[in-house]
């Protein structure tokens, strides 16, 4: 019966405090909660230290971070295959209508729109995936953190820089969905 409950989508008031719990567990291990540092560590592992001093550090000191994202991937696997009933996120009906009009979906299904994330070999799709990756990787390091490092870790410690970063996140997000989506998906 508990499993039946877990298999349903979790309400925000359960998920939110649980994310803070993850932050606490990492702090207890003497580490900071911030996911984007992994990207830097991976650069170092791939030899980026030869091209920039920014990547010249002993990656082993950050290996814990790689273990956390390895776990995160395993967690996604476990949640998807064993703890889900397969229902799509029930988002606002107006947003669904907008997505249909943009031609991104014809019906709501799964976690991601298939037209973008089920690879069909087109350049347009590859460009969307690669450019979004570049923006994420570049932006998060420039800003010194992502949603976890700034919106949760930084803000909970009342860091003004984190508030500015979060304002930036929303500025970028709003520009993308309101102004760029109609151009990209025209």
């Amino acid at each position: 019966m508990l499993l039946e409950y877990i298999k349903q989508p979790w309400p925000w008031y359960i998920s939110g405090p649980l994310i803070a719990l993850v932050m606490y567990l990492l702090l207890k291990q003497g580490k900071d909660f911030g996911m984007s540092n992994n990207l830097r560590t991976m650069c170092t592992l791939l030899g980026a230290g030869k091209s920039s001093s920014f990547f010249r550090f002993d990656w082993k000191t950050q290996s814990w971070n790689l273990l956390v994202v390895l776990g995160t991937a395993i967690g996604g696997f476990v949640a998807h295959y064993f703890l889900s009933d397969g229902s799509a996120a029930q988002i606002n009906a107006k947003s669904v209508a907008d997505l249909k009009e943009l031609g991104i979906i014809d019906h709501l299904q799964g976690y991601l729109p298939e037209s973008i994330f089920i690879f069909n070999g087109t350049w347009s799709q590859f460009l969307i995936l690669s450019i979004s990756g570049l923006l994420i990787g570049f932006g998060t390091r420039y800003a010194g953190g992502c949603s976890s490092g700034h919106a949760i870790s930084g803000l909970s410690n009342f860091q003004l820089p984190s508030l500015i970063a979060v304002i930036g996140f929303f500025l970028g997000g709003i520009i993308m969905v309101h102004f760029l989506f109609p151009i990209i998906f025209a």
């Binding site: 969307i128 450019i131 979004s132 990756g133 570049l134 923006l135 994420i136 990787g137 570049f138 932006g139 998060t140 390091r141 420039y142 800003a143 010194g144 992502c146 949603s147 700034h150 500015i164 970063a165 979060v166 304002i167 930036g168 996140f169 929303f170 500025l171 970028g172 997000g173 709003i174 520009i175 993308m176 969905v177 760029l180 990209i184």
Partner: peptide
């Protein structure tokens, strides 16, 4: 940096 990240996050 935040704005650049936000663009990628939304896309």
């Amino acid at each position: 940096g935040g704005t650049i990240f936000g663009l990628g996050w939304a896309l």
